[in-house]
Write a protein that binds this DNA or RNA. Structure first.
Lengths: 377, 377
DNA sequence: CCTTCGTTTGAATCGCCCT
DNA sequence: AAGGGCGATTCAAACGAAG
């Protein structure tokens, strides 16, 4: 933890009197922020509109309709309008921040580049960009792009000289003794955590998982800190702040979100001080697809594979497929096709010449796993 | 893969004559790009500098204010100059790209937000942001931030209407049957792959791993495509392009990098054309009208078709249309109508009784395609 | 009670060709 | 150039029903 010396509470009684602590302010976030005292907030967490530009109606392969984010609050006429909006709220947030305060903002490729550039232009000082890897993202239904499996967060200090809070030791401890990295793995917000209206209508289209906010607040605030969220939504920031013994100020324009947030936060019992530990997400299993052996130079395109008795042969192609006579496809599929079998485990079926002897290609996968494990250790 | 029909080579002899194919151009990338013919390149891969030293040779319009400039002015100036530089090379790259061309750019949080915003402002169309997760990143020695464990790539089309190359099926196949996601895991470039001067002095400070370029080129180019790298460095793009049977054009200002790249690429033996061949996607298969199944006697008029659960039935008519109650039309249209759906793939929806079991009529299409392939072989 | 299987769903800039 | 038809396309997780 930086700034070790200071153990005094971050919010004095007089400050609290001026600040609308643990409250939701209803209305425009820029106006509300401008009405708050300058230099009064330790952290801003912001989940602004992403400015998605969606075409009409996307359907899944089973013809069901995808529930799009088509709310009015996400509509902007142009990049210029979005930029003006972004700079206005970032400027207001900067005024409200303490000199050693910091800001988090989350976004996707639709908006995050504009937000990041605006932060730099407004003299915020970028500390990290952090990637939220989604364990269960929505697939790309049309097969036209890479699965959009992550969102980006930016962590920035109010200015270059800010000495921001970073609970390095606690994070390292919670991360099995190694430094916390800039890529975080969490599931999206589903199940019981997801707020619903009655049967199954989402209260908010883009509710963030509490685990994400846990990590953010645990990493970059101290107990008693004041966290301002100008796009409060259904109050994930407030809910986690309360659990972790931090104060929140929420600002939200849409009253249905406000009432849901109030109810949600009221039901929360703050955790005891000891319980304020980071949630440890399950470690990402290093799954090694066959294609990565080629990418990483362990098998060259054009290499010949054979089965253990050399009855069948196949050619490794650059794109990770095999070709054997008229057959092409994955290691498993071609293995099945040449045998006339229904299925086949290509990892154990296909072999490689290694010093005059045949070895199943599975040994390469073992090699790569060990290499990856060594590297990350 | 999009752009189904075209199986012709991407570079004709006449185009090659005009393009400095498989060559490194020494000098400023903007000047060199402006000297290339417009619309001539399939892909740009760019690893631009982000740590520009702009203080030298920098002329401000108002010389008298330079002395009085404080940190903020400096900061603004460097961002402004970086932006000007970025927009200049992105504009030059866009001119050189074919209408259906695309661009990749890699960067870190220091520059990527400015690059991304510039791309949007210049009417590129963002397709994905991709995260390169480093298996072995440099730790944060001072313990003041999260370990900077990733870099960001942006994949963008020349414009919104570009029909870019994306080898979806090959990627999915090489990824053990699931879509390739936007987060990629690779080790950084070390070991034998890392170019060194003599003992252990790195030739280039930020040499990218070949695995990264391998995935980029495999995903978004076809054999024979021309890939332009305006910041060629030690030629990773050229090396991988040569391996994969793609053409490259490198541009590099620093002659030590150029000589290292030349030597490196000369030593590479390209994979065989056979090994570089990509999996043929379904979208590229020849179209078979349903009527031809009837013409060729594979289905008799009057045959009854049902869906996989026998909920719906339809009658094949001699003209290639279906009839089901009040509905009539193509296999797709009637499939949609009986379900009350917007759309339907009749080939997979409608089934035929075959020896007591149901088989989709798509198997008949497969038969016909195989027959045609044999005839033309 | 547990297991298995089917259904639902999530910040999404998600075709191509022919007429 | 705009519209309509063909026909290609999904993964992990949670939940509920069925066995």
């Amino acid at each position: 933890m930086l700034r070790n010396g200071r153990q005094a509470p971050r919010v004095t009684a007089s400050e609290e009197a001026l600040l609308p602590i643990d409250t939701i302010l209803v209305g425009d976030c820029i106006e509300h922020m401008n009405a708050l005292p300058a230099g009064s907030v330790d952290l801003v967490f912001a989940d602004p509109p992403y400015n998605l530009q969606l075409s009409e109606g996307l359907t899944r392969p089973d013809q069901s309709r995808v529930d799009a984010v088509d709310d009015d609050w996400d509509k902007f006429d142009s990049f210029a309008h979005y930029d003006a909006f972004t700079r206005a709220w970032l400027k207001a947030a900067r005024r409200v921040l303490k000199p050693d305060g910091a800001l988090w903002v989350i976004g996707s490729y639709h908006n995050i580049f504009r937000v990041g550039a605006a932060l730099q232009d407004l003299d915020y000082w970028l500390l990290n960009d952090v990637v939220w890897r989604k364990a269960n993202p929505m697939p790309n239904f049309r097969g036209t792009r890479f699965t959009n499996a992550h969102e980006t967060l930016i962590w920035a200090a109010r200015d270059r000289k800010s000495r921001v809070t970073f609970n390095y030791e606690a994070l390292k401890l919670a991360n099995d003794g190694t430094q916390m990295r800039s890529d975080w793995l969490f599931p999206i917000c589903t199940g019981a955590e997801r707020l619903k209206n009655g049967e199954d209508e989402k209260v908010h289209p883009t509710q963030k998982p509490e685990a994400l906010l846990y990590r953010v607040l645990n990493a970059t605030t101290r107990p008693g800190d004041v966290v301002l969220d100008p796009f409060f939504g259904t109050g994930t920031t407030g809910a986690v702040a309360k659990k972790l013994g931090r104060h929140f100020i929420g600002i939200e324009r849409e009253t249905p979100y406000v009432s849901a947030a109030l109810k949600r936060i009221a039901a929360i019992r703050p955790a005891s001080a000891e319980a304020v530990a980071t949630t440890t997400p399950k470690r990402a299993e290093p799954r090694i697809p066959f294609g990565s052996l080629i990418e990483q130079g362990m098998i060259a395109p054009g290499t010949q594979l054979v089965d253990d008795r050399r009855r069948f042969a196949a050619l490794v192609r650059a794109d990770g497929s095999l070709a054997s006579g008229p057959h092409q496809g994955s290691i498993h599929r071609v293995g099945a096709l040449v045998q006339g079998a229904e299925a086949c485990n290509g990892w154990t079926f296909w072999h490689l010449e290694r010093g005059g002897e045949l070895a199943p290609i599975d040994v390469l996968r073992t090699d790569i796993r060990q290499r990856m494990a060594l590297l990350s250790a």
